[in-house]
Nucleic acid binder design. Sequence first.
DNA 1: CAGTATATTAAATCA
DNA 2: TGATTTCCATATACTG
Length: 512
Amino acid sequence: MATQKLTEYEIKRLENIRRNDEMLAALQLHAKASLLSNASKRQRDGSAKSYKVSPAKKPKETETPTVIRRSLRTRGMPPDSNCLDADSNENSDKTTLNQASISREKPSPCVLGPLKMRDAYDGTGSDRAFIDTLLSFERKLKSGVGVKEKFDSLKVKEEGNDRVLCGPVTRKVKSDNLNCGIKIEKREFEGRVDLESMSLEPENIARIMPGRIMTVRFLPQSNVNIVAAGNKLGNVAFWNVDSKGEKDNGIFLYRPHAGPISGILFQQSCLSKIFTSCYDGYLRLMDAEKEVFNLVHSCDDAIFCLSQHPNDVKSLYFGEGRGGLSVWDDRTGSVSSQWTLHEDRINTIDFNPQNPNIMATSSSDATVCLWDLRKVDAGKPKSLKIVNHERAVHSAYFSPSGSSLASTSFDDTIGILSGVNFEDTSRVQHSNQTGRWISSFRATWGWDDSFVYVGNMKRGVDIISPDQRRVIKTLQSPHMTAIPCRFHAHPCRVGMLAGATAGGQVYIWTSS
DNA sequence: CAGTATATTAAATCA
DNA sequence: TGATTTCCATATACTG
């Protein structure tokens, strides 16, 4: 065919253009370029991407030099203030409810070294109040207040007064018979939630950032309702849910990264330091004391997930590239271990609360694996157990007691793994076809082992009982105008559930 | 088999 | 209101 050669040429060319585009983005020239161009042109930046290649649309740049990403990394650009297009951005969206003064522009992630929070902050005013809030928690922690609080805000409901409640709060588990070394003991829990009382109040809804939210996390502190979320554009936003009517409605948006945020990690022991990971290959540490996003690690591969060992908070575990898992040691400031555990990207890493030596990974290679950290050495890692799904697995989380594991897969099932040695597997049918624009669903545990929460394509939150193996209730609300796809249950507050959408909204369900 | 092209999907934005 | 754009997800159907 005559067009064949042309197509190949086109492909090569577009690839060059794409890489050039990446370079431009990294160099922060995009923002400047678009500032130079007409303001009405709302940064149609993506015109040169390889999406829907139409030969008619020739980008301006014809001959693009090949640019090596590597060299950019090493070129430490100073955190120049002009990184951020100082768009005070017409505050036209004064619409309903809570809205941050969001610049819907693409962010301008820039700095390849430490990044001052002031420079990363995207807002008209000051983020002083927010920083001070974080520091006040820190002071409180140091003075010993509130460290051990858990589930203090809500008394456990009376037993048996609700037919919907079904799962036993405690499980009978024998602690012998450990043929694979997984020891899960019985544990009492009091995180029982009254599903019927869960509601979504309009004031607990906010659009806190532009773009698709990848991850949402509560700050792990009782009597504090702050969520952090990361989106596809590399932004991290904080929302103090209780500061209504205040400036910016308590929403603070930062731009520390240049790609999708794959993980946000609060540290129970130090609330002023927050880790973030990104597809751009960077691991940053936001330090509210020093008011900086430090660059703690960078790699060439994308970081797809981030987790922290419960008993060793100095060890960060993150999924890197195709099947890689790395451990970053905060003491030495370097990667201490690196394994290839899967054949495709690792989507989540989770540790068993009862036995933190047991780690679960979920992967796009359609498997969930359990690992014993004591046995995963430098050699060829061998998993304790493999759970096979039909398609990519997007999450695998241990239940609060540690006696179950819930995995969510593109094969339209949610897998439940339970039993003394996790020998029992069961499946719950659930449609997980999110398509391209909605972040994949991840069944997320609540406050005890009774339920997992997972979004559905009809703008609802399906609540699944692993014991009954079915959806027992769906949270719905006329206020929920988009599909909630990522969730987090407040670690200290039973019944408070955050759901995040592809449009930057966060819904906070509360229980009376 | 490795690389690639494409349909799919929802929501924000644009005209 | 309707049409357009988003565009590092995935499975499938292709090509060389």
